[in-house]
Amino acid sequence: MGGRAAMFALLAASFLSMFDRQTLPPMLGAIAGDLGTTVGGVGAALSVYSICYAASQLPWSWLSNRIGVVRVLRVALVAATAFTVLTAFAVDPVTLWVARALSGAAIGAIVPAGLVYVAERFPLDRRAHALVNLATATSLGMSVAVVIASVLGPLGAWRWVVLGTAVAEAVVAVLLLRVQAGPRPPAPAPMVRSLRRVLGDPWMVLILALVLVEGAALLGIMGFLPAALAHEGADPVLAGVVTGVYGLALIASAQLSKPLIGRVPPGVLMLLGGAALCLGFLLLVLWLDVATVLVASGLLGFAYAFAHTQIQNWMTDVAARDRAVGTAVFATVFFAGAALGAALGAWSAATGAYRWLFLAAAIGGAAFAIGAWIGRTRYRVRAG
């Protein structure tokens, strides 16, 4: 399979990695009713998923260094298919937690492997464009998942949504079998040595602090916008559809950002993204209705397209000597942030304290904007 076809398979896998994750939050009520438990009990599965996703990063990195990223993607998609089927047939909260934990561990390989694949094949000046495409795929998966789950969840079809995800994962696994895996990588540096280099780099420490905040807001808390809107009395289906504007905004913003890459300093792009993140959640603190969620979803799509792709690109240069391990640590912290955001979101869903949740996200967005702008402006490119 040629380069374009390989990138298509990678984009499809990236789409599914986020689709798989984001189908559950809009269906919490439906799943809780079906399994005879509380929304908080089902919501715990979201935190378990994110924790296992984060915990799987270094093992996947170790395997990637030995068999290559394409082979890792194949293994991950096959495993994800099996565990997603297990999720669809969950009969109680414990079964659901176990299934989502295993799914999170399997899906955890996809985005980091994609980042390494892109970083190994594109120089820094072209890499940002490829990362924009990856970010578009993952965030489109998030948006489509929210819309589909919000429409079908209240109809009692949550198991069919999950089964459909499993079928799609199986299809992409077959596509990846046609992608040339290439030779196995040369013997890598010991994992402990690579970890010390990565975690001992002050620039990497700054990036990890920033991405922890970003993950909590854009992955963890963002998924609870439909639930917050439904809590205010909006129709659950309408709440999901309105939130779906996030994906449309991200696609538009991603295309807008491409001609700016190389012309506008990366620090400024991250400042703009962080400001949009802060403003989007602050708007929801002040007013929480269909109109403000619509606007906020657009701002968050803009934030992801401008901020996340740039911080990914920054990380691939900082960790150039230990890219697989650096990417794994980056993803671990990103999804640790998502787990934190999901835990806060589950608490908010149980108590109805959504405005406090959004206020925390707005403060985090402001901190991200300032820290990313100052840090990236002072940084000097290393590997290119």
Rank of each mutant, 00 (worst) to 15 (best):
G2I: 08
F8D: 10
F8L: 15
A13Q: 02
A13N: 08
L16N: 06
A30M: 03
V39L: 10
V39Q: 12
G40H: 04
S47E: 07
V48H: 08
V48T: 09
S50P: 11
S61V: 13
R66L: 05
R66A: 03
V69N: 09
R74K: 09
R74F: 06
A80V: 07
A82R: 06
V85S: 09
A88M: 00
D92G: 09
R100L: 02
A106V: 04
G108N: 03
I110V: 12
A113R: 05
P123G: 06
R126K: 14
H129V: 15
H129A: 14
N133V: 15
M142P: 04
V144D: 03
A145T: 02
V151A: 10
G156T: 10
G156Y: 10
W160P: 13
V161L: 10
V161N: 05
L163S: 09
A168T: 01
A168Y: 09
V171C: 11
V171P: 04
V174Y: 14
L176Y: 13
V179M: 04
R184H: 13
A187I: 14
A189R: 15
M191T: 14
V192H: 13
L195N: 07
L199E: 12
L199S: 13
G200T: 07
I207S: 14
L219A: 09
A230W: 10
D235T: 01
V241M: 10
T243Y: 10
A254K: 08
A254C: 00
S257V: 14
K258R: 15
R263A: 06
L271R: 12
L272T: 11
A275D: 02
L283E: 00
D289Y: 08
S297V: 06
L299Q: 00
D322S: 05
V325M: 01
T327K: 03
V329A: 01
T332G: 15
F334D: 12
A346L: 06
A346I: 07
L359S: 13
A361E: 03
G365E: 00
A372F: 11
V381C: 07
